[in-house]
């Protein structure tokens, strides 16, 4: 499942850093709608939106990764279906869709903003580093943390 062959990736940007996740993990990309607040939730939980009749929980990836809340213009939401239901990740913007060959992924484990569990490696793309991250699991795993927090 985690085999990274010549797959299509969605490249997105948070705080001028590039990240990529398998394109097929995402349902759609939607323009940011201001989420409605939900009380008693962790800070990186922005709230919820109505996406054509479905209530979608929105996670602010920027906050989740501990990046200062310096929003550059309008944010974008990546909608994906996690094991806990449909969730949205608020990011700065979508860059592009590229093909990444698994052999070019450098599996260097660097403890950074993303837990190693979700860090799938790095790619050198046009002299920029793209961090490959499993956003789908990242979103649903957060949820487990919330539950522990509230328990």
């Amino acid at each position: 499942m985690n085999e990274l062959e010549n797959e299509r990736y969605l490249v997105f940007c948070i705080d001028d850093e590039l990240y990529a996740s398998p394109l097929l993990d995402f349902h759609e990309v939607v323009e940011m709608i201001k989420p409605k607040p939900v009380p008693n939730m962790p800070e990186h939980f922005s709230g919820m939106i109505n996406l054509r009749g479905v209530i979608v929980a929105i996670i602010d990836l920027r906050k989740k990764m501990g990046i200062a809340a310096k929003y550059q213009g309008k944010q974008t939401m990546l909608i994906c279906e996690t094991e806990n239901g449909i969730m949205g990740a608020a990011i700065d913007r979508v860059e592009s869709v590229i093909h990444i060959n698994s052999s070019t992924v450098q599996d260097v484990k660097i403890a950074g903003k993303i837990a190693l569990e979700y860090l799938k490696g790095f790619v050198n793309y046009q002299d920029r580093i793209i961090t490959i991250v499993d956003v789908k699991s990242f979103l649903s795993e957060q949820d487990k943390q919330f539950l522990e927090m509230s328990a």
């Binding site: 939900v38 008693n40 209530i55 929980a57 806990n84 969730m87 919330f146 539950l147």
Partner: peptide, 11 residues
Amino acid sequence: RDLNTCFDSSF
């Protein structure tokens, strides 16, 4: 509407 399980912590 069903809520995502992450809302569970909002007791």
